[in-house]
C-alpha cells in the first residue's frame, strides 16, 4: 500500500511516461483494480491536454530592442560606464559645455584685469585753478595735483 505522497509521485510519473518498466506495470495493475483511480487519471489527463492547448505566447516584436535599450541605459548609469557615457555625449552638448567653460574663463580673466585698468586710467585728483572769475562762474578749469 502506497502512502498518499508516493501515490502522487506515481500518478505524475505515470502521466508523464516517466515510470520504469516494472513500476509502470505495477501501476497498470493498480488502475485495473480501481475505477476511482482510473477516473482521476482521466480527469487529470484532460486538464493536462487543455492546458497544453492554450495558445503559445509571443513576446512583443520590439522586445529585444527594448531590452538592449535598457541595457545601454544601465551601462551609462553604472560607474564604470560613466566615462564612456561622457565621451559618447552628443557633440552639441559637448560644444555647449566647451563654450560655457570658455565664456566663464574669459569673464574671470576680465574681472581680474579690470581693477588694474581702473587704477591705471584713474585721473589724478584735480583742484580748481586760481581764477577768481572762473571760480565765481563755476567754470573754473581744473589742474591736476602734483604729487
Amino acid at each position: 500500500m502506497n502512502s498518499p505522497e508516493q501515490s502522487a509521485e506515481l500518478m505524475s510519473a505515470y502521466l508523464d511516461a516517466e515510470l520504469e518498466g516494472d513500476e509502470a506495470e505495477a501501476f497498470d495493475s493498480l488502475l485495473a483494480d480501481s475505477p476511482e483511480l482510473r477516473d482521476e487519471l482521466e480527469d487529470l489527463r484532460k486538464v493536462m491536454q487543455l492546458v497544453a492547448e492554450l495558445p503559445e505566447v509571443e513576446a512583443p516584436e520590439d522586445f529585444a530592442d527594448k531590452v538592449t535599450r535598457r541595457l545601454r541605459r544601465r551601462q551609462l548609469l553604472a560607474p564604470e560606464g560613466a566615462l564612456m557615457g561622457l565621451i559618447s555625449l552628443p557633440f552639441q552638448v559637448l560644444s555647449i559645455i566647451v563654450i560655457l567653460t570658455a565664456a566663464g574663463l574669459y569673464m574671470m580673466a576680465q574681472l581680474e584685469r579690470r581693477p588694474a585698468k581702473i587704477e591705471r586710467d584713474q585721473p589724478a585728483v584735480q583742484v580748481p585753478v586760481d581764477d577768481p572769475e572762473a571760480l565765481r562762474s563755476g567754470e573754473a578749469p581744473l589742474r591736476p595735483i602734483e604729487r
Binding site: 505522497e5 502522487a8 509521485e9 506515481l10 500518478m11 505524475s12 510519473a13 502521466l15 516517466e18 480527469d43 487529470l44 484532460k46 486538464v47 493536462m48 492546458v51
Partner: peptide, 15 residues
C-alpha cells in the same frame, strides 16, 4: 520525489 508529488498536487488543484 518532491517535484513529482508537487506536480500532482498542482494538477489536482487545477482540475
Amino acid at each position: 520525489g518532491t517535484l513529482k508529488s508537487r506536480l500532482h498536487r498542482a494538477r489536482v488543484a487545477l482540475k
